[in-house]
Design a protein around this nucleic acid. Structure first.
Length: 350
DNA sequence: TCTGGGGTCCTAGGACCC
DNA sequence: TCTGGGGTCCTAGGACCC
């Protein structure tokens, strides 16, 4: 039996959960995002159903634009608790197979499996998830996480696909570098400036050139990505977050410094309470400000000592805020707290 | 139609110490 | 008096992902 990695990805997860509890929405264009008000400013689409996508609606698009493109769509508010619960059902179903399940967010998981027929396993998983939860997923099969993840893209929707070293060049060789998992538009552009347009060209690029251009870690890593190499380790040990943040874009700009300070302190208290409830301790606090011009800055500071006191974190956040050149209207304020490391969390949290 | 929220990781550069 | 490196810590910003 051989080791395989499977990547399971729910199809249109958020929209599918909404349709599951409101069957009358099936087949209709559904757009989920923000407060669900298509006339609201500064809100964007979280997910659009396939029917809504046919009108050109996609995630990240302003809700008001979605409303123009597809006025008859059903607009719904985002309901994180419902997605959390549906996700847990899916993950539980996956754990009933003889596989190691590594959860990657609400709607994704990597599975480590030993089998001679990974496609049969993938189809069995698809069937079980659909029967048990009513949700459709796609499954990619690979020899590492990158291959499995990319295979899922070829499997969508509601299918199974395999991508291995044997088929890597045939399937990926002539695709643009941006098709790789970890190469975004910016990096694709920089690679193109070096004459590296396709996966094959990136794979055969000189490692020294990549290192010089992109740094000692990232450079060689891009070369490996191009050759279809990726992480082969799958673990079911739960992920321990390293930070937690809250940020808010206000429907109207905020200009009053006292109000800005009050909101930053409030965000700091809220985020601190949440991590303390999970037994964690705050070691650094960062403040993010986005001005009405969309110019965005972050300032961060290490605390004098680690703390679990919301007021101490709020006071530190206000000191950090004092390092900004305010006096201009802002559209977004955010606070992020960085947390103690895993061992410290274990010592303090149990 | 102006551009969300929540994360992770990497790099560069300055400060400081030896 | 001038010049040298290495190592570590810290912060700001960029890029990517869902």
């Amino acid at each position: 039996m051989r080791a395989w990695i499977l990547h399971v990805d729910l199809d249109q997860f958020i929209a599918a959960v909404e349709v599951r509890r409101r069957p009358e929405l099936r087949g209709l264009p559904v757009v989920v995002g923000g407060s669900g008000d298509p006339t609201a400013r500064r809100q964007v689409v979280a997910t659009a159903s396939y029917e809504a996508r046919a009108f050109g609606v996609h995630s990240g698009m302003p809700l008001r634009m979605a409303a123009r493109k597809c006025p008859d769509a059903v607009f719904l508010p985002s309901d994180p608790a419902a997605y959390e619960e549906a996700s847990a059902e899916v993950m539980q179903t996956l754990r009933e197979f003889p596989v190691v399940v590594e959860v990657w967010g609400w709607d994704e998981a990597f599975l480590g499996a030993k089998t001679d027929d990974p496609e049969a396993l993938a189809h069995a998983i698809r069937t079980a998830v659909l029967e048990r939860t009513g949700l459709s997923c796609s499954v990619g099969v690979g020899e590492n996480k990158q291959q499995a993840k990319l295979a899922t893209g070829f499997a969508k929707p509601a299918g199974v696909a395999r991508l291995t070293h044997d088929t890597w060049w045939e399937i990926m060789g002539d695709r643009p570098t941006e098709a790789l998992w970890g190469v975004g538009p910016r990096m694709a552009h920089r690679l193109a400036e070096l004459g590296l347009h396709t996966v094959r060209q990136l794979a055969s690029a000189d490692s020294d050139v990549l290192s010089r251009e992109f740094g000692p870690r990232m450079g060689p890593w891009y070369g490996l990505l191009g050759r279809g190499i990726g992480d082969t380790h799958v673990t079911d040990v739960p992920w321990v977050p390293k930070s937690r943040s809250h940020e808010t874009t206000y429907p109207e700009d905020v200009a009053d410094p006292a109000e800005i300070a009050e909101r930053v302190a409030g965000l700091a208290r809220a985020v601190t309470r949440e991590v303390v409830d999970q037994g964690r301790t705050v070691v650094r606090v960062a403040v993010k400000v986005r001005f009405s011009s969309f110019f965005t800055q972050t300032r961060i500071s290490k605390l004098p000592e680690p703390t679990r006191e919301p007021e101490a974190v709020a006071a530190a956040a206000l000191r950090v805020l004092g390092r900004f050149e305010l006096g201009r209207p802002v559209r977004l304020l955010g606070v992020r707290v960085e947390l103690d490391d895993v061992t410290a969390a274990r010592d303090g949290g149990e």
